[in-house]
């Protein structure tokens, strides 16, 4: 994938920021409004894929030195790990807790362990989706060699 398209690249630079912001919004709002880990993760992944499409994969990877497979594994581990926190308190596996707290800047905010679980979900989705795309395109170059 080596497109050389100035318009696409300049548009991408702007849109990617918008998509990233939007996906963070979707992710954080998931508990009360449409959104959540899956959608947030997927739209982040879509943004990264757009970057890959617009720029060279190698270039993007230079700036994004993340192993997405490890990211996915980390996500699953976080999700499973939150399951055990409930067990420490004697509740069944995967019990989630929530509480309303007054935070300095945000005002009255709900803090829920479900958000941590959702973070795990989001990371797993991002990691898997991006590593699928990456391995297909990389496997591709691997085979052309």
């Amino acid at each position: 994938m080596k497109p050389n398209d100035v318009i696409l690249q300049s548009v991408t630079k702007v849109t990617v920021i918008i998509i990233f912001t939007f996906s963070v919004y979707l992710f954080l709002n998931g508990h009360h409004h449409p959104g959540g880990g899956f959608i947030g993760g997927l739209s982040t992944a879509a943004a990264i894929v757009l970057l890959f499409l617009a720029f060279d994969i190698e270039k993007v990877r230079e700036n994004f030195q993340i192993d997405f497979k490890k990211l996915a594994a980390l996500g699953v581990l976080i999700a499973i790990g939150t399951g055990f926190t409930g067990m420490l308190a004697g509740d069944p596996f995967l019990t989630q807790y929530f509480n309303d707290k007054n935070l300095p800047i945000f005002g009255k905010t709900e803090l829920a362990t479900a958000l941590i679980f959702d973070t795990g979900v989001a990371l797993a989705v991002i990691g898997t989706a991006v590593s699928i795309i990456l391995s297909i395109s990389e496997g591709d170059s691997l085979w052309k060699r």
Binding site: F38, L42, V125, T128, A129, I132, S135, I136, G139
Partner: peptide, 13 residues
């Protein structure tokens, strides 16, 4: 939907 995405990817590859 999400699982289906993964399955499609796997089958394509």
């Amino acid at each position: 939907i999400v699982i289906n995405f993964a399955v499609t990817a796997l089958l394509l590859v």
